[in-house]
């Protein structure tokens, strides 16, 4: 088994590695990653993005929180967190209104995973940051303005 592992590591690289691992039964097919929602990530405006996600018109909710700095000195690394006290949250997404593509990241939360996600995003300029949360099949939203003094897109 150990020898096999060595060989797998030696021969594999990049995408080839995954298929080799899959073939060897080390990674089960269930591990295959979900399809990337290209339409949502390509959408430029907030409205188009929401449409591509299928969110319609989300309702503003006090039970959704966006955390982040009020002023970000460096737009290349802006810590943003989303949390919610709503029940049965199945999806969380971070949208930045004035970025070239509004959607930064979306997370699918299976049962048992808490509605609390933190990450870091790039912001080209001062913008509203939206947290989109799907709870019990309905979409809710919260907003926070983050001021950027130095853009994150080579500005």
């Amino acid at each position: 088994m150990n020898n096999q592992r060595r060989n797998v590591l030696k021969t594999g690289s990049g995408a080839a590695l995954l298929s080799v691992l899959a073939a060897a039964g080390i990674i089960t097919p269930g591990m295959a990653l979900a399809d990337w929602n290209k339409a949502a990530f390509d959408a430029k405006s907030m409205a188009d993005t929401l449409k591509a996600i299928g969110a319609g018109t989300p309702v503003d909710s006090k039970d959704v929180q966006v955390t982040g700095p009020d002023i970000a000195e460096n737009g290349a690394v802006v810590p943003v967190g989303v949390s919610s006290t709503l029940p049965n949250v199945t999806m969380v997404a971070i949208l930045i209104e004035k970025n070239p593509n509004a959607l930064a990241a979306s997370f699918t939360l299976p049962e048992g995973t808490e509605a609390s996600v933190q990450t870091r995003v790039k912001m080209g300029q001062t913008s509203n940051v939206y947290a989109l949360v799907k709870s019990d099949g309905k979409f809710f939203m919260a907003t926070k303005e983050i001021k950027v003094t130095l853009g994150g897109c080579g500005g």
Partner: peptide, 10 residues
């Protein structure tokens, strides 16, 4: 957790 990232993640 399964997530999708766009290019605006740091």
């Amino acid at each position: 957790l399964s997530s999708e990232f766009g290019p605006s993640v740091s």
